[in-house]
Design a protein around this nucleic acid. Structure first.
Lengths: 191, 191, 191, 191
DNA sequence: GATGAATGAGCGTTCATTCAT
DNA sequence: GATGAATGAACGCTCATTCAT
């Protein structure tokens, strides 16, 4: 009980610090201080710094995938499914900007190197809704004949970049702009 | 003269090292060794490590902008101009993968934070072909009515991500795939 | 009762760990785990780590002295007594290699410093058979006129070193070699 | 020049500290302070702590072997050679007590583990006067038929232990006692 | 101007010890 | 009495930066 609370404190502190200042700006001592625990305490919950960092990533990933998977309209047409995911991304990360920033830091760091070969946002254990989407779209000839990688990039890169801009307050993504953004992404991959 | 040569040596060495191994894998001493100069010498050309890193970024950016600007068909329709830039990006970074990797390292690091507010790929002094493209497209009603930020993201984010995948050898972007990719980006922003 | 058992568990665990891996390889937490008790529990039986370590030493020492003293032929000639002790050492440590290894660890550590001034193997309370042997030998003029320290070193150092080699399997000390070794030690001190 | 001086300072500081207080009592920071250099400086001369510690050992060993080998009467009878070595050990370590203490610390530590399989005091590159002595003695039938290990222990263990006692001022080894000690060692191995 | 030896703040990590439960 | 989660001082080591040569 208390145990979980402390673990959460550490994760929260580390996440915020890393999201805000990058990995360099978040030494163990600072994480401990922000979490209100001793340095040694962190090592009771996480084997070492790398494990802590990867654990945070995994937690965020799980939350995100859970969010996107919930109410996923798998019976609906590809287009509907794509919109569900794309808008889900926008909604989720708009509401959890720290998660987004952490993701970014993680992904473009030595830590993310290992994950690079996996599709971004893909959860290990669960069915891969991204891949399913791609394959169904291809089979039904509703999306262009592109390698999966490129398909995903067209479909999601603009959204990710725009989310970053939104979070950095360089642009405000409201509902109508989100709609426009997601539609445009769809325009780029649909036949 | 010799001075410029030495400066170039340092930049080249630092860039290669950082592109290949990240900022962590490129301590000043290693850069000095690879550049064939003394550690102290680096400090004659660059005030400190941060300045060196930012200078490298600037140099790459200038080379890229020079490449894209050269033979820029400013008199041609927006679509043609867009294709020039988009394909130019693909060509340039395909030929200079180290530049790309450095860009990525830089962009997603504390160093990149300051640059985030500027448009990516935008050179300070020169006329901004990106912005000009956007404004002309808007005025002529050939592109959707989007904030410039989102326009750029739709237009170039998939290309940048795909370049990364290409450089990491997760997908091979040949001429025909490049054509398809760029066309798709255009599809997402055109009216 | 349970108390004594628990104390023994701790001593046993600590001894084995230290004998096998040295002081560095035996943190309190590991000792606790191996002993099947909580870390805090150790501190109920031993004031701190140093006390624990010294207690273990004392226990081993007592067991050894008890072994050597049992059936000690105090009425027999010096030579017989010496052989009893010397062979007893070989037998005891051959049968209890962990005790030997612990002794060695202890002796050549900061902990051993304090004990250095006492004769090795000398038990505090009991009559000192080593000293008695020395004094009788001297009085009867069967051993050379040497300071006690040097007498003991000549008499036992080769045995201790050879036991180490035996335990490290660099030499196999069987009965006949033990006989030869002990005889040689005697040769060095006898007149 | 200065370089060698600094290296010597570090070695001296580390040796004294380790000899006096053991490895635990000689953290890098303390060595640096005592040597009058920065911590980082140590790492210019020694790759890491282990290397430093082993280097010191090697230096002492070389000095000792050089001392023992110089004027070594290899043409003389085994007995003379033995006395040369044995008395050399006494003289050398009496004059260099820190070397002795360091040797002892080193030998009974995890660092010494690797050296354990080699004969103590045996230098890698040079001809092994110890082994030569043993083999010649055996061939000429002037020493008992013992395994080399046991021979060395009989011949030198009492000397080493007595040197320790001398250095700890538990006994004073003057020339005549040294003579007696060495003779006694010889008595234990000679036929 | 050029050098690289020297520096020490700062890092990740360990572990003896405490104390609330 | 027994526990083990929590602590933080202390460790070995790195590397950006300086400055005497």
């Amino acid at each position: 009980m208390t145990k979980q609370v402390k673990r959460e404190d550490i994760i929260r502190a580390a996440m915020d610090l890393i999201a805000a200042q990058g990995f360099h700006g978040a030494p163990m001592s600072m994480i401990a201080e922000k979490a209100g625990v001793g340095v040694g305490t962190i090592y009771r919950y996480f084997e070492n710094r790398d494990v802590l960092i990867k654990s945070i990533y995994k937690e965020i990933e799980e939350r995100l995938v859970a969010y996107l998977t919930k109410k996923y309209p798998s019976e609906e047409p590809v287009r509907i499914c794509f919109f569900h995911i794309a808008k889900g991304l926008v909604t989720y990360f708009t509401q959890h900007p720290m998660d987004f920033k952490y993701f970014e830091q993680f992904h473009y760091s030595p830590f993310g190197e290992a994950h690079r070969r996996n599709r971004i946002f893909k959860s290990a254990g669960q069915p891969d809704i991204f891949m399913e989407l791609y394959e169904r779209g291809l089979a039904q000839q509703v999306i262009k004949n592109l390698p999966p990688t490129v398909f995903f990039n067209l479909a999601f890169a603009p959204i990710v970049w725009s989310l970053r801009d939104h979070i950095l307050e360089m642009v405000a993504i409201d509902d109508s702009l989100a709609e426009l953004l997601v539609t445009s992404c769809w325009d780029s991959v649909k036949i």
